[in-house]
Write a protein that binds this DNA or RNA. Structure first.
Lengths: 194, 194
DNA sequence: ACCTGAACACCGTTCAAGT
DNA sequence: ACCTGAACACCGTTCAAGT
């Protein structure tokens, strides 16, 4: 039967989850779909475009507009949602970072828009809201890519020492620290009254 | 004559500068050094280790300990030095990000140490200085990788519109905005008097 | 000790030709 | 319109064998 874009994206996501981004190749994807590599190029211009489609599917849950709330809560909600989405698939942060860098993720642009809006509500000058949004995004992508690569290293390595304290070792708490830094920093950049 | 590590790293840096990271392959590097690809594996365990050595050479100018100054100035100095080093070679930010993610850059760890020290001077609790340092690093790497990939896009594309205002378009100024957000955010995280 | 030769197991992409 | 077959131009890594 016919190959559809959505089947290709779904199989790509499955490979990502089961084997990681290094094994997500056009040839392997074609093999698992029982087609020739060339067939994929009828549906996607190139590998980057295909990866962008996978990234956007992965980010769909993080694109929902949140209910009205304070700008601080909105930034926190968007960032936690983004991190959760990235963590939901193996190498999700790496995939999304690459797609963003290649300008192939419409979903990231949307998330960036939401963050910029929140920065505007915080009182950041209109000319700087986009900068504030990008600053936050770089943090979320950097932190989560790091977190996810450590998870893989840990999974293959020794057991964790049980001297864990939530304040320094729980990834969610660690993530929150940087988030708080950024929220406080944005508050300090306000140029207009709220 | 004999192949030395430093010759390999120097030639790799030259390929990076002239053709970009996509063309920095083990086979091409070997060809330009007039050796067989296998020869490189006598000197380096794998490609990641070699790229780590290139990253560390590139970052050497950013590793100098700065003169005594306020913690704010120190963070700014370290970050500007890091960005300058990344911009000094084509795809420098991408190379360093990859080497850092692979745990192959001793220089990045050193820079991270300097940032953590500055956070400590700012009054951030000892348990959190490393988190603060990473937050800053993710920003510098993310911003600069983005900046550098746009440079390549612009170089191939149309001329820039001349409606440029330094406040929103000069990359150095744009970089400073996020830096200020982080510095102010760290100041807000102080738990002990300075 | 240091390097070659040759192989192994792959890549992304293109495109004439088929159905 | 959609896909195959086959090619093009590559990859990283290993390792017996040479010097």
């Amino acid at each position: 039967m016919q190959l559809h874009k959505r089947d290709v994206v779904a199989k790509a996501a499955a490979i990502l989850d089961n084997y990681g981004i290094a094994d997500l190749t056009m040839r392997r994807l074609a093999r698992e779909l029982d087609v020739t590599p060339g067939a994929l190029y009828w549906h996607f211009a190139n590998k980057q475009e295909l990866l962008g489609a996978v990234a956007d599917q992965l980010l769909a849950p993080a694109c929902a507009e949140p209910a009205p709330m304070s700008w601080q809560a909105r930034i926190e909600t968007v960032c936690r949602g983004l991190r959760d989405a990235l963590l939901s698939h193996t190498d999700g942060a790496e995939l999304v970072s690459a797609s963003f860098a290649a300008g192939q993720s419409q979903a990231v642009e949307q998330i960036l828009g939401g963050l910029a809006e929140a920065a505007g509500e915080a009182g950041v000058a209109a000319a700087h809201t986009e900068l504030a949004a990008r600053t936050v995004l770089y943090y979320v992508l950097g932190f989560t890519a790091d977190e996810q690569s450590r998870m893989q290293w840990d999974a293959a390595g020794a057991a964790l020492p049980d001297t864990r304290s939530a304040l320094t070792d729980d990834p969610g708490t660690r993530f929150g620290f940087g988030l708080q830094v950024l929220v406080d920093g944005i508050a300090a950049r306000r140029t207009s009254p709220v």
